[in-house]
Amino acid sequence: MKKICFINGSPKTGESCSLYMIDYISNKLGNAYEEKMVINALQLFKNSNQENILKEILSCEAIVVVFPLYIDSLPSSLLEVLEALDICKKSLPTDVHNIPCLYGLVNCGFIEGHQNINALKILENYAKAVSFKWCGGIGLGGGEMIRSTKNQIPLQSKPALPIYHALRSLADGIKELKVINSDKAIVFANHRFPKWFFIFMANRTWVTWAKRNGIKKNRMFAKPYLD
């Protein structure tokens, strides 16, 4: 039975771009996998059954790590899960029959998809360290905007086409357990917006969100810890 596991590296409990991407890719896979697992990295260590879950992940043909960029790399909670998976794998007899294919899908708050490059490199190094097959990954810019404008700017609309192509390339690779196209023009993608427009929209959104908490714009510049 062909199995796939999505590791959701977003520490957010509610909606997130990562979860949206997992749903999207999962739907694109159709019936290619008989069993699909979605593991939340932050929740895993609260689960008393974590050892068995890690073994379940290792028994999958494909592992897809989906996460937001934190300080130019992986969120600590996701890094912890990957390290635990590494330790678990090394404690088990070598399974020569199953070498999982590892894929990455990173999104960042900046508009440029290429700012995810270091996170994908870390995943590639990880694959080498644990003897998984590195099959590549994609890096999407403007992650929160992709999720929050999914109805206004659908993925197949003109401004979102680069994101659509990157996701399609990833989904096609996962479907057939193949290495994805490594062309940087495809794997690093974002909306076709001028940068000034992205900055204008994003900055306005931050002010709106702060206002909902009763925080006026000038208070957002507070310097609470200056001696």
Binding site: Y70, S76, R212, N213, I215, K223, P224
Partner: peptide
């Protein structure tokens, strides 16, 4: 504790 990505340090308790 791991950061939970709530962004409250930007929009609820700025700077903290």
């Amino acid at each position: 504790r791991p950061c939970i990505g709530c962004f409250n340090c930007w929009i609820k308790t700025p700077g903290k």
